[in-house]
Nucleic acid binder design. Structure first.
Length: 469
RNA sequence: GGUGGGUUGGCCGAGAGGCGAGGCAACGGACUGCAAAUCCGUAUACACGGGUUCAAAUCCCGUACCCACCUCCA
């Protein structure tokens, strides 16, 4: 069986055939670094991280590009409002994003190009479009350059819309456009409103890149005029991806062969982009569950399914993940490169069917627990479980999740271990004397400290209790 | 107005013509001094109305409700 992916352009699931055998080039639209990342922002990153890991696990040599939009109206406005340079905002928010993605084990992209670092490439692409008659400098001398939508007959092909049916944006600035639907490739510097640092010289006067053109230019630079997969959130289908496609094709490039779009995470049916307070910012959510549990929550839904975020559902997901984890703790994964179970491979090959893939993991966990209950070794099954989790970026044994050596966490844990071990010895002697009251009193004291005790054939063990640990 | 998607059990969440994905929660049993963990078992579903079919959660038609996008939101 081969990998099949849902392509927005053809609206069906079809076999993935790479342009070059054994290789896969992916371009994913990253974030505009204008605010702190929340749960919604990182879903896209997790989804495409899973795609990348699966392609890699399937033997592809993957080049994965995720851009950073580090200049736009909002970043400039924020800088203005805070009295700080816009690039300081972009840099700081970029670092916050890196931290958030690292906390949920999203691998760094092969390259992570930023818009401001590619002004020459962008201007070259704009120049091509102008000379081919698909773009024009604004006729009002504003310094803007627009893509001429009417000059490109297949405009709208990605989202199957006809230009005539599109509502002209109410907030669109009509100055100097031939058609209200024409979009900006280059934005002329507004001297009175924008800092000089936000303007680059160009044949059309000083200005800065428009949003859509940066992706076209950077995709071509790092992946070439034709590449395999272009990804992003559903909201980007139009206008962003439609515009990218039009620009790149109008410039004579083949562009992406497959278009993948992930669905939203919403709360109370609303998009998260609105101001919903801070509770959904990644650092806040990570006070409630661990990064690996948040990742499990995201991976347990299919990437094209809309997810209604709730803390209850998040807690459930965390509980489900702990079941897998506790099985692994009670067995010994050999950590050899075990061959993945066929059902897992089939699930992943079917348009990244992570829910079915996770069901396969749970079935293995149950089988493994059954063996353990019968006093047999479940190590082989544990190895398979680890191998499957690893593909999803969910291996608890991955050093990336663990506390770094010599950290406070580790020392604290060692200290607690000494104290709890002493108490458990006392309890053991109480139990030996069948003094249940004293035994339970000791266990209650330990529990009151937020520590759960579990009796096993090899003696009692302790771990931090769920919830308020 | 145009385009795309959705409605599955107490909850989350798969599936896409015939065997109840999986998890969380619940209940019963095993194990345990009692628990916890684990195992075994149980119940509760496919928005509504028609139609096609031997057979529909799945296909078709209609209805209701919900969501997204329509020019700088993942």
């Amino acid at each position: 069986m081969t990998l099949r992916l849902h392509d927005t352009a053809t609206r069906d699931v079809r076999d993935f055939v790479p342009l070059e055998a054994g290789k896969a080039g992916i371009y994913v639209c990253g974030l505009t670094v204008q605010s702190e990342p929340h749960v919604g922002h990182v879903r896209s990153a997790v989804n495409f991280d899973v795609l990348r890991r699966w392609l890699t696990a399937s033997g592809y040599d993957v080049t994965f590009i995720r851009n950073v939009t580090d200049i736009d109206d909002k970043i400039l406005a924020k800088g203005e409002a805070q009295g700080r340079p816009w690039f300081e905002i972009a840099y700081l928010m970029g670092r916050e994003l890196d931290k958030a993605l690292d906390a949920i084990n999203v691998l760094p992209p092969t390259y992570e190009p930023a818009a401001t670092g590619h002004v020459p490439e962008i201007l070259e692409l704009i120049g091509q479009l102008v000379s081919r008659g698909h773009a024009y400098p604004a006729e009002d001398g504003s310094g803007d350059v627009y893509f001429d939508v009417r000059s490109w007959p297949s405009y709208g092909e990605l989202t199957r819309q006809r230009v005539e049916d599109m509502e002209p944006a109410e907030d669109a600035d009509p100055r100097g456009k031939r058609d209200p639907r024409d979009f900006a490739l280059w934005k002329g510097w507004k001297k009175a409103l924008e800092p000089e640092t936000a303007a680059w010289p160009s044949p059309y006067g000083p200005g800065r890149p428009g949003w859509h053109i940066e992706c076209s230019a950077m995709a071509a630079k790092y992946l070439g005029p034709a590449f395999d997969i272009h990804g992003g959130g559903v909201d980007l289908r139009f206008p962003h991806h439609e515009n990218e496609l039009a620009q790149s094709r109008a410039a004579g490039q083949q562009f992406a062969a497959y278009w993948l779009h992930n669905a939203w995470i919403t709360t109370a049916g609303e998009k998260m982009s609105k101001s919903l307070g801070n509770s959904l910012l990644i650092p806040e959510v990570l006070k409630r569950v661990r990064g690996i549990e948040l990742r499990y929550y995201m991976v347990s839904a299919h990437y094209r399914s809309h997810v209604e975020f709730s803390f209850d559902a998040l807690d459930d997901a965390a509980a489900a993940f702990r079941r897998i984890e506790s099985f692994l703790e009670r067995s010994d994964a050999a950590h050899m490169a075990a061959e993945l179970p066929a059902a897992f491979v089939a699930a992943m090959d079917d348009d990244l069917g992570t829910p079915a893939a996770i069901a396969v993991i749970h079935e293995h966990v149950r089988d493994g627990n059954r063996l353990l209950a019968a006093g047999e070794s479940a190590d082989d099954i544990a190895s398979l479980v680890v191998a499957m989790l690893d593909v999803l970026g969910l291996d608890p044994g991955d050093p990336k999740w663990g506390p770094s050596g010599g950290s406070d966490d580790e020392r604290l844990s060692a200290a607690v271990d000494v104290l709890v071990a002493g108490m458990l010895e006392e309890r053991a002697s109480a139990r030996a004397e069948k003094d249940w009251a004293r035994a339970d009193a000791i266990r209650d004291r330990i529990a009151a400290a937020g520590i759960a005790v579990e009796d096993t054939p090899d003696g009692p063990t302790w771990s931090l209790a769920e919830g308020d640990a």
